[in-house]
Simulated scan of single mutants.
Amino acid sequence: MSEASSTPGEPRNVTELSGRITSWRDFADRVSAVMAMAAVEPVSITMTDTNFVHWPLGQRSVMEAFQQWAVNGSSVVKCRLLAGTYEEFARSHPRWLMWRANWSHRVICQEAPEELASQIRPMLLLHGRLGLRLVEEHLGTGVWTRDPGVLSDWLSDCDAISQRSHDGMPPTTLGL
């Protein structure tokens, strides 16, 4: 596996298909870079984590990228989140939740059953293009790849858990 490039989320050259993620900060920087890519050329997105606490989903640049992704993408382009729990999400990412209220028709949030939640790894996939996946959550280390076979395998792993999951985190809170 080649070393990670100096620009988060982008390889040094077109032939470089994968690299390392060295820390949670590196992961967050790469999430921001990947979302900037998605804003320019929208494709479906899959994001997974046990709780998304360490993700930069509330950062202004990431929120602007999500908005551009939603505006520029067709109605078939979706974003799917799969979590073990959404208990901390509102406290960690209030801006993202406000944005999602307007785009809930394009954003699906699923919660895995308790017995499968521990199998979820932090991962961000731009379908068919690029993926980030942490291998060691406590350290925030992992890999990024553009390899279509690996991306397909990662998506299959997510789909296996997703099929047994239920809707999580309603887009709005209803009250009387």
Rank of each mutant, 00 (worst) to 15 (best):
D29M: 07
R20A: 14
S118I: 10
V77C: 12
R20L: 11
I108H: 07
E115S: 13
A70T: 05
T48F: 05
P148L: 08
T46I: 11
N72E: 09
D26H: 12
V62D: 05
T46D: 05
A101P: 03
W96P: 04
G128V: 04
E88Y: 11
R30M: 11
R129D: 04
S18I: 04
Q119V: 10
Q68C: 10
E111G: 05
A39K: 01
H127C: 12
A83Q: 01
V71H: 11
N13R: 06
A117H: 06
V107D: 01
T48C: 10
L132G: 00
G131K: 00
L97V: 09
P122I: 01
A112W: 00
G140L: 01
G84I: 03
N13K: 04
P148A: 12
A38M: 07
S104Q: 07
M37F: 12
L57W: 03
E16P: 05
W96F: 12
N51Q: 12
V53G: 10
F89I: 05
L97W: 03
H127F: 03
S18V: 04
S32L: 09
R25Q: 15
Q59D: 15
F89L: 07
Y86H: 06
E88S: 14
L151P: 01
R95I: 06
A101C: 07
V14P: 10
S92C: 10
E64V: 11
A83G: 06
W24D: 12
L17N: 10
L97F: 05
W96R: 00
A101L: 07
G142Y: 04
M123P: 06
A70C: 09
S118W: 10
A70K: 00
